[in-house]
């Protein structure tokens, strides 16, 4: 069970640990919000709503999660509320994501590149990586974004309210699915037409 602090405004006084941590989280929250909402103006609204909710609920501040984790947990709940309201449905669920190293194997066949990493740079640093992540179903996108934000499996489990095993399986599945989608995009756009 999460510990909560007393309902004291001191937690938000300038220079207080929570205030400093909250301020330091703005860029991380905004980065994730952009990927979740796919719109910068909507992402701003989501971050603002997150802080509004956090300020209202500061008496229930979760010390075990820490300020960053607590804010991400709030933002995740608000975002899922929006998703349910808008009834957005994921489109890429059905793709096979069980195969390992599909992107590595694909790029390793690039005779012009000296390494798979170089081939990756040549093909994917044009924004399609971010777009691919944004297109993932919410239950795969969230652990991917939190992992990129530096959270451990255990911290993600607390933020998302999932068992650690579920976090691991969904995170690993998300990574494989992103790779699968990148290979699929590559083939569809004909970037690899001179490949084997």
């Amino acid at each position: 069970m999460a510990k909560t602090s007393a309902a004291t405004p001191k937690v938000l006084e300038r220079g207080s640990p929570l205030a400093i941590l909250c301020e330091s989280c703005v860029n991380a929250l905004y980065s994730v919000a952009v990927r979740l909402t796919r719109r910068r103006d909507t992402a701003e609204d989501l971050v603002q709503d997150t802080y509004v909710r956090a300020l209202r609920a500061r008496a229930r501040y979760d010390e075990e999660l820490g300020a960053k984790g607590w804010l991400f947990a709030i933002m995740r709940r608000l975002h899922l509320d929006d998703v349910r309201r808008l009834r957005r449905s994921p489109q890429v669920d059905s793709l096979d994501d069980r195969e390992d190293f599909v992107l590595y194997e694909h790029l390793s066949r690039d005779a012009a590149a000296s390494s798979a990493e170089e081939a990756f740079l040549a093909h994917y640093l044009d924004g399609c990586l971010a777009a691919t992540v944004e297109a993932l179903p919410e239950d795969l996108k969230l652990p991917l974004l939190l992992s990129a934000g530096g959270f451990t499996y255990r911290e993600m489990a607390r933020i998302l309210g999932w068992p650690v095993g579920t976090v691991m399986s969904r995170l690993h599945r998300a990574r494989r699915l992103v790779q699968r989608l990148l290979v699929q995009q590559c083939r569809e756009t004909g970037q690899r037409e001179d490949g084997p």
């Binding site: 703005v26 860029n27 991380a28 929250l29 905004y30 980065s31 994730v32 952009v34 990927r35 910068r40 701003e44 971050v47 603002q48 990756f120 994917y124 640093l125 990586l129 971010a130 992540v133 991917l144 974004l145 990129a148 934000g149 990574r175 992103v178």
Partner: peptide, 15 residues
């Protein structure tokens, strides 16, 4: 690359 791509946004001044 995922980390660089996903958490590199800077919050705008308006936010």
């Amino acid at each position: 690359q995922l980390r660089r791509c996903l958490v590199s946004e800077r919050a705008p001044a308006s936010l």
